[in-house]
Design a protein around this nucleic acid. Structure first.
Length: 354
DNA sequence: TCTGGGGTCCTATTTCCT
DNA sequence: TCTGAGGAAATAGGACCC
């Protein structure tokens, strides 16, 4: 028996930029862009003043500068954002039992069974602002999909409550690309078939969508365009993989330089995992060439990688075997099949043979 | 306009095992 | 020993998200 759910989605407004503005109030009201200052940088976050000039997230910094020459550039400070995030999420968890944090600035909450879910979320919003001076937008709906669309609909400081029918009325004529999970590629594939609205997509049979997009994605699309979504709010999820990668300010041609960069990334990744008490059995590399094409290689070992040297050597070996035929723009190292190292004591006790 | 870094998930293909 | 079906796991690539 499916019980009617009530799901909330909460999203901090221009989060990174907002945190910077708290530290530097003199920037308030000005166009601010959070990004590293490099030739190949992209915009991480922009204040609404900068967005008015057409600046948006993930946009090349070179473009953003052209569109908004007066913008003030602030380098990202992830430690500060993590701290602010912890303060925000602490409030959310204090007010709601079931919280799924998606990123530093976003979370789903399960409000099912609450007598006054809206009042609960109003309280969360007020407390977050009182305790952190940050603003959030909230969406409430019968599932994650509607909640997320709703939180995005009227930001900043939005508070939108919709049921499925209202969501349909509001967005039936919008592009399928509005729906989270439908990106540029799928939007294009649909457009080739003359499907450019959610309404048009909803007229396609599940069977047809499965033929076009496969046995999982087809039915998923069929449900999505009906604003139907049964994904539960899952409080804790173990990480699947972790990686470190870097784009060079200039492409690297020399194999020795490439290997050196790869070793540095491997060391960084190993340190991070060791801090968490995690290790993985699968080592992967990622290579982006000058023409922006990307190649990956991976190798699964019989036992989890126990030392930094093995990780680095495995990565370097794969890079040598691949042997890039173009200058390299980006290198990355990844570990997957992650597991938690046993508690203290177990690895101190060597399994010896008599 | 010229594209970061850190992730998740899906698909197709290959490989290995029974 | 050869052959093959079918599934699980590994691999590569790509779409997508913040």
């Amino acid at each position: 028996m499916e019980v009617e759910r009530c799901i909330g989605h909460l999203d901090c407004d221009a989060f990174f930029a907002a945190v910077e503005l708290l530290r530097r109030p003199e920037l308030r009201g000005k166009p601010v862009i959070v990004a590293h200052d490099g030739p190949r940088s992209v915009v991480t976050t922009a204040t609404y003043e900068a967005r008015e000039h057409g600046v948006g997230s993930a946009m090349p910094l070179s473009v953003a500068r052209r569109r908004c020459p007066d913008a003030i550039l602030v380098p990202p400070d992830h430690d500060a954002y993590r701290e602010a995030s912890e303060a925000v999420m602490a409030v959310v968890r204090d007010e709601v039992d079931t919280v799924q944090q998606l990123s530093l600035d976003e979370a789903y909450v399960d409000l099912s069974g609450l007598v006054a879910p809206r009042a609960a979320m109003r309280r969360v919003v007020r407390r977050i602002h009182r305790e952190t001076s940050l603003h959030v937008s909230v969406g409430i709906g019968p599932n994650k999909l509607v909640a997320k669309l709703a939180s995005d609909a009227e930001k900043p400081k939005g508070f939108v409550v919709l049921d499925r029918r209202q969501a349909w009325r509001r967005w039936a004529d919008a592009s399928p690309g509005l729906l989270p999970g439908i990106g540029p590629r799928t939007t294009e594939l649909l457009a080739e078939r003359q499907i450019s609205t959610i309404r048009a997509l909803a007229r396609i049979s599940e069977h047809q969508l499965s033929e076009w997009f496969g046995p999982r994605s087809g039915p998923w699309l069929w449900r999505r365009c009906r604003f139907d979504d049964h994904d539960p709010v899952v409080p804790v999820r173990e990480p699947v993989s972790e990686s470190r990668e870097t784009t060079f300010s200039q492409d690297i041609d020399d194999p020795e330089d490439q290997e050196h960069a790869l070793r540095r990334l491997a060391a960084k990744l190993f340190d991070a995992l060791e801090q968490q008490g995690r290790r993985g059995r699968t080592v992967g590399i990622k290579v982006r060439l000058a023409d922006f094409s990307t190649v990956s290689r991976s190798r699964t070992l019989t036992t989890p990688v126990e030392d930094a040297e093995l990780l680095a050597e495995t990565a370097v070996a794969m890079l040598r075997e691949y042997g890039p035929q173009q200058p390299v723009r980006l290198l990355g190292v990844r570990m997957a099949s992650l597991e938690l190292v046993d508690g203290p004591g177990v690895q101190l006790t060597l399994p010896w043979s008599p």
